[in-house]
Design a protein around this nucleic acid. Structure first.
Length: 271
DNA sequence: ATGGGCACCTGGCTGC
DNA sequence: TGCAGCCAGGTGCCCA
């Protein structure tokens, strides 16, 4: 599901309501996420104050007094802010009950999401220690892409989705970024010129930033903290547009498979 | 190191 | 209506 824009939209959606609040109680209804929720987490969290809400890659970081929660939304997860009395629905796996009377409620049909706790250095955490740069940060630019792609035989689409190269770019935004950069997804990463690397870096940044501006992309399950979908789907140029005319040149969009995932591109606009 | 494929899981849709 | 098969915003892990 959620790629970087959806996680960032969720972060912004809960930040104000959550910062400075105390956790009254963690209520777990199903511990079976991608990794089981630790059995002592209820004890650990009770009474802790939330200091801030951050994000690294596609992980939401809920910083507390004595450590941090590391939450991943997986493919189908969403986190909503609700009055805690609102009845639960199917796949509502846990609630973080706050002293405001509101709840952060996690719903995830496929259970690929995860919830971890750490009281150590976040950068050293197993899930975060080897992740690449943030795509919207200054250290992600054409120079970086060009350097990182030297000698890499993988297809560009897979290269972009590799979290060691850059984080946050998933299946939708990888296709969309390559479209905007006018580069074919099947080319080897090593074939990128310096000029193309510049275009690609700019494309990744602008696609992600535009998506964040409208609350992300909702295909099926995703909703923001307010329960509303994201509207970037209407602005997709290639994703899920197999055989439909390219919005720019009218040539039919093509769908191919790369690394067992669907890729979409315009055979005429992208070289 | 690099690349490729699998696994985890539920639900929605298609076609017979 | 039922059911099999395929597909879906991710990513850690195992193998060559």
């Amino acid at each position: 599901m959620p790629e970087l824009p959806e996680v960032e939209t969720t972060r912004r959606g809960i930040e104000t309501a959550v910062t400075g609040r105390r956790i009254r109680q963690l209520i777990v209804r199903d511990r079976r996420l991608r990794w089981p929720i630790a059995t002592n987490l209820e004890i650990v969290l009770a009474g802790q104050q939330i200091r801030s809400v951050g994000r690294r890659a596609k992980y939401l970081l809920i910083h507390c007094e004595r450590g941090a929660l590391i939450l991943h939304l997986g493919m189908s997860g969403s986190l909503r802010l609700l009055e805690s009395a609102v009845p639960t629905i199917k796949h509502d796996h846990f609630d973080l009950l706050l002293d405001s009377g509101q709840s952060l409620r996690f719903n995830d049909p496929r259970r690929f999401g995860s919830l971890h706790w750490t009281d150590g250095d976040l950068k050293q955490h197993k899930l975060l220690q080897s992740v690449g740069p943030e795509p919207l940060g200054d250290d992600f630019d054409g120079r970086y892409i060009h350097q990182a792609s030297r000698g890499r035989r993988v297809a560009l689409k897979n290269f972009l989705m590799n979290g060691h190269v850059v984080v946050g770019v998933g299946n939708i935004y990888a296709s969309e970024s390559l479209y905007r950069a006018k580069i074919r997804p099947g080319r080897r990463a090593s074939s990128l010129s310096r000029k193309e690397s510049d275009r690609l870096a700019r494309a990744v940044k602008s696609v992600l930033a535009s998506a964040i501006r409208v609350g992300g992309t909702t295909l099926r399950d995703y909703v923001g903290a307010d329960g509303k979908p994201g509207y970037f789907r209407q602005k997709l140029y290639v994703y899920e547009r197999d055989r439909l005319p390219c919005r720019v040149c009218r040539a039919p969009i093509r769908k191919i498979t790369q690394g067992q995932r669907s890729t979409y591109y315009c055979p005429s606009c992208q070289k």
